[in-house]
Design a protein around this nucleic acid. Structure first.
Lengths: 327, 327
DNA sequence: GCCGAGTGTGCAATCGGTTGCAAGCTGCTG
DNA sequence: CAGCAGCTTGCAACCGATTGCACACTCGGC
């Protein structure tokens, strides 16, 4: 159906090698021939077959993105960033959603690995060693996860938590609860550590109420435990959890922010729409996606490059869910 | 790096053709050899190279999904359905987000088309003729769009609107506003038509307040116009728009559902979390995604099959945003 | 008029599989 | 025991590109 190199060659009256060169290494061919080839290619609507090219060059021109759950709006934002940058480089993107299934994750990663030039692994839950194994034979960039010195794009969680605690401490809170995410989540870990540090610095008491699923229901489930701690403010693993907290607190008639302040992380679109509008740490999600692809492309072009790590800052968005603690 | 057919052949002491057959047409080879080949393949961790296979068979084992905006939670749900079914068939999925950009859409579709066996086009905004042109040389399944007799999975919008109107009419509403989506949206069109019909049947007055962007801000923008119509109930193009309406109405101090009832469409997760929880038409999004892939795979297996069309019913989810009109 | 450098092109191998065809072997029939 | 069918297996062509190498030709210098 589609025109092949041979068709173009025949039409232009040259060999296939000349056509190939005329199109990809124009300097090597005579301007006149080059023009003839080009017009032949145009008139046939020729597009090189990626599979065939990939076979010989070893480059597929594709890239893969693996993430835990598209149902969490954080991830679609990342996808958008990844796609934007990939498109600019004329690269197509495979997307795989693991459904937060740690077991399925490695399988999906491996399946994709052999079909792409490189992978962006967003918030992977797998063991560091497994990820290193993958990175050993595929170019990989981690996003929102750090494993030794694998190339990665991460958010400065420590700084983000410092901003959140500073904000709450300034309002007068002295007892803050932390609702953690999945136990296997690197970012939950980071945030927890950042919080301990920041709380200590501000002389604020931090109470960890444990690990919860990273979505609305997790927040619903955590709310009552949070209330039981007697904390006057709570920081949630992410916005979805924070919104779940909001819902359950509302249902119990506990006023936010009058009785308790709530802080989320991510700043998904829904955060601003929540009632009360959610105070949260805005993470540059799309930018992270773009940057991850950027790193990946650089690495692919010059594999010698030392793996790079980029850290992105988040910004505290103060909205209506935080206020002074009750007296 | 990765093991090839040749490596397996050498290890098993047979020719490459035998290996190929042992793995894909097991009946053709002697059970003993087959076992030897299999264990050799296993021990080498052999996985056939998709590009190479695709070159000769003409099948890539990949499929593409094009959709308008991952930022709208409706679409990630569809993606999940598509991936679930594709994964079961051991097929990888390219995902492309057009950012609601009609111009970019066709470009993306064409770029993907030459790299996949088939495409699922979800809510495409392109002209019917352009879509038919694509379908002429690629296997295509439409989702939430109908163009002549191209294979498609659609929702029964007419029925959904009937349920919504019946619900509102039963509550006593006599004047209903309709906030349409993008002008290029087939589903917006369908819903509008379904509404006219249903309103007529129920002797209810329908007021169309025009076309709005299919998200939160669209709803914010539409709210005041809705109020100005004097309607006691409003049906929005989708849940995102409905939630925008809710926000603006709240800001203006117009009580929902006391002063005005609000109905959404889709039943995205956010709908149940809204305050008040949103009455909406639940569309089986994941199922639609699965079904679209199902159709696509069938079509690919036997291109002779007459293109099929599947219609899925939505269900009215009555929540807190609808009530009797003010007296 | 010959040689060397430089340019432009084609030949053929290659990537990793699949598949039509033919050949070797076994075992059965007549 | 010849002959034939049926089962296994290997050879080699092929899919559509890329690329190292060699050949042909031009041009300038001596």
């Amino acid at each position: 159906m589609a025109a092949t190199l041979r068709d173009v060659a025949r039409l232009a009256g040259v060999s296939t090698s000349t056509v190939s060169r005329a199109l990809s290494l124009p300097d090597l061919v005579n301007p006149a021939t080059r023009a003839r080839v080009r017009s032949a290619a145009d008139s046939l609507g020729y597009e090189p077959n990626k599979a065939a090219r990939g076979l010989i060059t070893g480059r597929t021109g594709n890239l893969g993105l693996v993430l835990p759950d598209l149902g969490n709006p954080f991830f679609p934002s990342v996808v958008k960033g990844v796609q934007a940058r990939a498109r600019a480089a004329d690269v197509a993107v495979f997307v795989a959603d693991t459904d937060e299934d740690v077991a399925a994750e490695m399988g999906l990663i491996r399946a994709l690995a052999q079909q792409v030039d490189g992978l962006v692994l967003c918030s992977p839950r797998a063991e560091g060693d497994d990820l290193k194994a993958i990175a050993a034979d595929t170019t990989v960039v981690l996003l929102n996860r750090l494993v030794d010195d694998l190339p990665a794009v991460v958010f400065d969680h420590e700084d983000g938590m410092r901003q959140a605690v500073a904000h709450l401490a300034a309002l007068g809170h002295r007892r803050i609860a932390w609702v953690g995410g999945p136990a296997a989540s690197w970012s939950s870990d980071q945030r927890g550590q950042g919080l301990s540090q920041a709380s200590a610095d501000h002389g604020v008491e931090l109470i960890e109420v444990g690990h919860f699923p990273p979505h609305y229901d997790g927040g619903m489930a955590a709310a009552d435990q949070v209330v039981a701690t007697g904390a006057t403010a709570v920081i949630a693993y992410n916005d979805l959890v924070a919104i779940g907290l909001l819902a359950r607190l509302h249902a119990r008639g506990i006023a936010v922010p009058e009785r308790i302040s709530v802080v989320g992380i991510d700043d998904i679109a829904m955060a601003a729409m929540a009632r009360p509008a959610l105070t949260t740490i805005r993470l540059p999600k799309e930018q992270a996606g773009r940057l991850a692809v950027e790193l990946l492309l650089t690495l692919l072009d010059s594999p010698a490059t030392t793996p790079e790590r980029r850290t992105l800052q988040g910004d505290l968005m103060v909205r209506a869910s935080t206020a002074e603690p009750p007296r």
